[in-house]
Amino acid sequence: DRIFMTRTEALEFLLKAHQTAVDKIGHPSHKQTPADHAAIEALDRLLLDVRARRVDQFQINASAAQIIVTD
């Protein structure tokens, strides 16, 4: 599946995904793992790359739809 978004929409989408990941590892019942921190770092890099126009398409994980940034 493909989803087309403007750059602004894609950045909002990534910010929400980032916040969800941060909230998940901050929850008291969740045991933090290196994979959790790696996922947040990957989202940080992706946010910067989309914002800087170095990336025009991405996929958060293998089961997610491919996001295509349109400007």
Score class of each variant (00 low, 15 high):
A35S: 11
Q59P: 03
H18N: 03
S63W: 07
F13D: 01
A35F: 09
I67L: 02
L11M: 09
E9R: 04
Q66I: 15
V69G: 01
Q19P: 01
R54Y: 05
F58M: 01
A21N: 03
I3M: 09
F4L: 10
A39F: 15
T33L: 08
A21T: 07
L48F: 04
L47M: 12
H30S: 11
D23F: 02
D71P: 07
Q57L: 07
G26Q: 15
D49F: 02
A62M: 09
R51W: 05
F58W: 02
A35D: 10
A64Q: 11
I60W: 05
R45Y: 03
N61W: 08
Q57E: 11
G26L: 15
A65M: 11
K31C: 05
A17Q: 10
D56C: 08
L15I: 12
L46A: 01
F13Q: 04
D23P: 02
Q59V: 07
S29W: 03
D1M: 00
R54A: 06
A64P: 06
Q66L: 15
H37R: 14
Q32E: 13
A39H: 11
A10N: 00
Q66E: 12
R54E: 04
R53C: 08
L43N: 00
I40N: 02
Q32C: 08
L46E: 00
L48M: 12
K31V: 13
E41Y: 04
A52P: 00
K24S: 09
I60N: 02
Q57D: 05
H30A: 09
F4V: 10
K24V: 09
T70V: 13
Q19G: 05
M5W: 01
I40P: 02
K16G: 07
D56M: 10
S29N: 14
R45W: 03
I3Y: 05
H27R: 12
A52H: 14
A39S: 09
F4C: 10
H37Q: 13
L47P: 00
H18P: 00
A42C: 06
Q59R: 11
V50G: 00
A39G: 06
A35W: 06
I68V: 11
K31Q: 12
D36P: 03
A10H: 10
E12C: 07
H27F: 09
A21E: 09
L46P: 00
A62R: 07
R51I: 15
I25F: 09
R53F: 05
A62V: 09
D71Q: 06
Q19E: 07
R51P: 03
E9A: 08
A38F: 11
R7W: 14
A52F: 11
Q66R: 13
E12A: 11
D71L: 05
E12N: 10
D56H: 15
A38S: 09
A62Y: 06
H37A: 12
Q19C: 05
V22G: 03
A64R: 07
N61F: 09
I60D: 04
R53L: 07
I60S: 03
D44R: 15
I60L: 11
L43T: 01
I25P: 03
I60G: 01
V50Y: 01
F58R: 00
N61T: 13
T70G: 04
K16A: 13
R7A: 04
D1T: 01
A64E: 11
R54T: 08
T70L: 14
H27C: 06
A64S: 14
H30G: 10
A62G: 15
P34I: 09
D36V: 05
A42S: 09
F4K: 05
A65P: 14
A52D: 14
R54F: 05
I3L: 09
D56F: 12
V55N: 02
H37V: 14
M5G: 01
P34N: 10
L47K: 02
Q19T: 07
D23E: 14
K31D: 10
Q59K: 08
V69Y: 02
D44C: 07
A62P: 13
E9H: 04
V22Q: 09
R54P: 01
S29L: 12
A64C: 07
K16I: 12
L48E: 15
E9I: 03
A64L: 08
L47N: 01
H30N: 10
D49H: 04
A52L: 14
R51A: 15
D56G: 08
A65F: 07
Q32T: 14
Q19K: 13
L47F: 09
F58Q: 00
F13P: 00
R51H: 11
I67T: 02
